[in-house]
Every structure is written in structure tokens, then in C-alpha cells.
């Protein structure tokens, strides 16, 4: 896994693009995400089912992991079981 890798959720429709990462796997719906979708869909863990929003960036507390959601789904994102939080863009007043 490296920046630019596209990951798919095993438990829902979510897809993310990796912006920053380290050794741990990115999870969605409580299950590690992969470059391919598994044949059998994993079940959605209730603790990780707040959903993902298209176009949102998600980060961990240390800014070690960052992904961009490119397809939304029902699962929510985590690393080592700890939920990732959304990172807001700091919108410019349409400067260009």
C-alpha cells in the first residue's frame, strides 16, 4: 500500500484513495480494505457503520494515515480499530 493506491471496502461500497499511510491496514466497516473486492462480502460491524462521504478526507489523530473517499458506503473508516476523523478543506473564497 502506498499513496495513490485505491482501496475497496470488504463490507460496503466504500472506496478510498490513499494519501498517506504507514504499516497498518486501513479498515472499513471493521474489516481491512483491499485493492480487490473479496468474493464474499464481509459483515458490517455495528461499531464501524457511520458511513463514508464522497470527497471527504479522513485522517487519524497523528496525521500518519490519510485517505480520500472516492465512493461512499455504509461502513466507516478506522486504523487498528480506532475511527478516522474527517479533515475539512479550508475553502478559499473562490480565488481562481
Amino acid at each position: 500500500m502506498k499513496p495513490g493506491t485505491r482501496l475497496k471496502s470488504a463490507a460496503c461500497d466504500t472506496e478510498v484513495m490513499v494519501i498517506r499511510c504507514a504499516a497498518s491496514a486501513i479498515e472499513c466497516g471493521g474489516t481491512p480494505m483491499g485493492e480487490a473486492k473479496p468474493a464474499d462480502e464481509a459483515s458490517l460491524c455495528a461499531d464501524h457503520s457511520n458511513g463514508t462521504l464522497m470527497g471527504k478526507r479522513y485522517v487519524d489523530a497523528d496525521n500518519t494515515y490519510e485517505v480520500l473517499c472516492v465512493k461512499p458506503g455504509k461502513g466507516s473508516l478506522s486504523v487498528d480499530g480506532i475511527a478516522l476523523a474527517t479533515k475539512e478543506a479550508k475553502p478559499l473564497p473562490a480565488s481562481d
Binding site: 494519501i19 464522497m54 470527497g55 475553502p91
Partner: peptide
Amino acid sequence: HSNLLGYILGTVEFASADEADAA
């Protein structure tokens, strides 16, 4: 790509424009 995406992702909220908006 990383420079341009860094700029856009950092400063533009995805799909934030109304349908009537025009630049």
C-alpha cells in the same frame, strides 16, 4: 500531480457548488 492535488484537496470542498453557480 501531488502538487496540484495538494492545492485542490486542501482548498476546495468536493461538490460544494450549487447547480446554478458558474465561473
